[in-house]
């Protein structure tokens, strides 16, 4: 590029129009960049969140604006056995499914952390349950749980002869609850396993070598090296898992729709049933709002877990 060309290249830049000048002024650029994201989030997330809280104090019906009724919705819900049962089952479902997911997911992560042939292929296959639409895999589970044609019953009764009667997976409350928890654990294992595997891979092998030289048993190595170093990532994954299991909707809606006799309603499915087909938007909103305290607890836990991690690593800001 000779001198004349260089000058010609610079020239158009100097006479920029007002739009370009505005875009080079930082505050304007910041506002411009943040508007799409924050705008969408404010209109479709923050506003509905506030509106939901307000609606929970009204008797809004579908297509009819409501009037303020104070705590009436909540007072009614506290006497409603179906709601109390849903709260109880939501907590039980979250606890049981989380324990199952993390026990099995951690085991799978430890297995995958070994030297294996076709490791990346196995890892890719393992994520399949997590990427397929929940409702579609739930339908497969529904078919597996069929009272007459369940393949599990077929294997246990007709092939192995361990039982004489087919399982009634979804017909009675307790089997239905455990069936839902099993489906949730099945879907959750891949996420937990792959996330924890990422955490395991950051642990330096030299720590294990040193421990082995000192004669530590495999349990001691797990207890004293793996567990503490995995704790920060475990806390984050745990928070997300608890949060999304607690707010689960799809599995239950697809497999049992809250039945038999309302025994498997989660708070989210009950809110949907009362709010949309039942048209009682105010009451549905109240059920959804009742989930918020639990979610806030989980979020605070996440915040402090991340805060602690930064502190542990000795990092100040980043």
């Amino acid at each position: 590029m000779n001198q004349a060309e260089a000058l010609a290249w610079v020239a158009p830049r100097t006479q920029s129009n007002w739009l370009q000048r505005l875009l080079d002024w930082k505050p304007a650029l910041v506002i411009l960049c943040l508007t799409p994201a924050l705008g969408l989030l404010l209109v479709f997330l923050t506003y509905p969140l506030g509106l939901g809280i307000w609606m929970s104090f009204t008797d809004t019906q579908l297509g009819k604006p409501g009037v303020w009724v104070g705590l009436e919705n909540f007072q009614y819900l506290l006497t409603d056995r179906v709601f109390l049962n849903a709260v109880w089952f939501t907590i039980f479902y979250t606890a049981a499914a989380t324990i199952g997911k993390f026990a099995l997911g951690l085991w799978l992560a430890l297995l995958l952390n070994q030297h294996l042939p076709f490791k990346s292929l196995i890892r890719a296959i393992i994520l399949l349950p997590w990427i397929t639409p929940t409702v579609l895999s739930a339908i497969a589970f529904w078919w597996i749980y069929d009272p007459q044609f369940s393949i599990v019953s077929y294997v246990v009764v007709d092939v192995l002869h361990w039982r004489t009667k087919y399982f009634d997976f979804l017909g009675t409350p307790w089997p239905a609850r455990w069936s839902l928890i099993a489906a949730n654990v099945w879907r959750g294992i891949p996420f937990v396993a792959i996330s924890l595997l990422a955490g395991l891979q950051t642990i330096s092998p030299s720590l294990y070598e040193a421990a082995m030289l000192d004669g530590a048993s495999s349990w001691q190595r797990f207890r004293r090296i793996t567990a503490p170093l995995l704790m920060p990532i475990l806390a984050v994954v745990l928070t997300f898992s608890v949060l999304f299991t607690f707010a689960d909707f799809q599995l239950v809606y697809a497999i049992t729709r809250g039945g038999p006799i309302n025994s498997t309603h989660l708070m989210a499915t009950l809110a949907f049933q009362r709010g949309i087909p039942g048209a009682a938007l105010g009451e549905g909103a109240a059920i959804a709002v009742a989930m918020i305290p639990f979610l806030v607890l989980a979020t605070l836990f996440s915040y402090f877990a991340i805060g602690n991690r930064k502190w542990q690593q000795g990092g100040s800001d980043e």
Partner: peptide, 11 residues
């Protein structure tokens, strides 16, 4: 951290 299942009614 705000799950869709608490938002869908007001939304």
């Amino acid at each position: 951290l705000v799950p869709p299942s608490i938002l869908f009614i007001p939304l």
